[in-house]
Design a protein around this nucleic acid. Sequence first.
DNA 1: TTGTATGCGTTATCAG
DNA 2: CTGATAACGCATACAA
Lengths: 331, 331
Amino acid sequence: MSDVARAAGVSAMTVSNVINGHPHVSEETRRRVAEAVDRLGYRMNYAARHLRSGTTGVIGLAVPGIDQPYYGHLAALVIAGARRLGYRVAVEQTGASREGETEALAHSRLRTYDGLIMATVELGEEDGGALFADFPVVTLGERFRGAHVDHVGMANFEGAGDATRHLLERGCRRIAVIGGRAEGESGAATLRTAGHLAALADAGVARDDALLAGCAFTTAGGAEAVRRLRDGGVPFDGALCLTDSLALGVVRGLRDAGLSVPGDVLVVGFDDIPGAAYAVPSLTTVAPGHAEMVAAALEMLTERIAGRRPAGEVRSFTGPHRLVVRESTTR
Amino acid sequence: MSDVARAAGVSAMTVSNVINGHPHVSEETRRRVAEAVDRLGYRMNYAARHLRSGTTGVIGLAVPGIDQPYYGHLAALVIAGARRLGYRVAVEQTGASREGETEALAHSRLRTYDGLIMATVELGEEDGGALFADFPVVTLGERFRGAHVDHVGMANFEGAGDATRHLLERGCRRIAVIGGRAEGESGAATLRTAGHLAALADAGVARDDALLAGCAFTTAGGAEAVRRLRDGGVPFDGALCLTDSLALGVVRGLRDAGLSVPGDVLVVGFDDIPGAAYAVPSLTTVAPGHAEMVAAALEMLTERIAGRRPAGEVRSFTGPHRLVVRESTTR
DNA sequence: TTGTATGCGTTATCAG
DNA sequence: CTGATAACGCATACAA
């Protein structure tokens, strides 16, 4: 920068002012500096700016695994949105473990990042707001609902209810809930299951807990869950899969069992991942409003980073959901 | 740091030495400093270290889109591997455009990142090594083969040949090449197509250019290509899809046309993305040795960053490929 | 084994 | 409208 200053016959301070578009610089000076910058191929040293300003221009994004379609889709939106706001995004993988999530948070606090968007799968309210004190964090998912942290979530309860009503309308009476669990930590799975059960009750359809098939939230887990249900002699004519990845596995598992979708079993997923539309059969699913969620998360985070909102004032946002009907429930 | 120094009764320099694990520090001093660090909750300011050392501890990963399964899978491996080496990873999305790729490179050079791993889809040799001078870059993909840049690639030609031989062995005689193109820039598509044509020739099977179905490299593109082939009255009994994403679309498109896989048409993909194993039918595909490729890329990059290899000495690595046979080619 | 002096490149402040 | 000064927090070189 001092080289540029010398070349333009001004001080380094004036170069800085030109670069940052400060108002009180004469047109002539601005022009001379710009010319020198071009000629010398000068580039700002961000490390120095960061040292001076205390910011890094980088936000962290902590997700269980970037190779999971849902988080990949989310990350694409976050990276694109952050870029428009002048931030780059560093991705951390937590492996959906409490340890990984805690560590991602710890790294971020080292002032390496200006803020963190974290998909919390394990970390919950009981881990205490202390973890988040004094650092801009937005949680994504369900574990932190109600805690003293900004939060962006989706309509798990309502979405699962819509999906269930859809299956009931199309004639299902025994709906397996893949990944379902009636109790336990208040995660997305529990909320979606609750939404399902509420919809069943409203419709006066009997509940059978044998249909709640808890399993790993992976494609393999879905296939495995189908196998267990059938081995256990539990009949079902519909499957509410708590994620699309599970649903892909369920379709796979049903096929292995010689059953067809939607011929023998209707299948609904959740998340509307990119692959859902092109699966065979294409998946009926609950689209949780990804774009709106990401926009809200970035807005909350930048608001915090800029210090525009007092620490005590917590915001929350729930994405607009809608049921996308495709082949897996269309006979 | 000076607060810690004061608390421990030493100089800031000694604190620095303790933190960086320098050898010549007495056990007693080390202990006192560590205690003070804990008590005061001191954290290193990375911006300052970066300003001083010229390194950031961050490497960039530039890919067309992190939501594409292939790149998501790659990114997961890169992030995990980089972490073991003490680096974090910032993801840039280039949108597979020359502009995006150039920009990712420019950003990286601003010393924001210590190095860059870039999946080059558009940027090619003609863009000149000048872009890469003086900055650690490893290219991933085919566009830079032979240029003066470190490069990690896969066995496109050989893999496509293996896939083609596999289809021929199982009785196919008219193999559509989805995404195929006989000429044009020397990208992965061209190399894979060439491998296919060479295998055909070796087997003495007639080539029909009507079977080369160029299209967008997306799932939608695959479905669309099938539609065009059928509308054009081009019969085929096998499909070599140049990526797994395309293959998923092809399966989809065939089904829309009332054809079954593998009943009517055998389908092979390329890349072995995570979804390939759980698709219905599961996809036969060419696995390009992702893990080995990522390991090689990281090793080349860190070697460059550490300055352990002269600028003129360029390395190249090709992943070990193998054909994974699954349902889509098993009648 | 520990400490002192110095500078990395930028920008806030305030004087001119 | 422009410039001199100082400071952000750390680590290299060298002295003690």
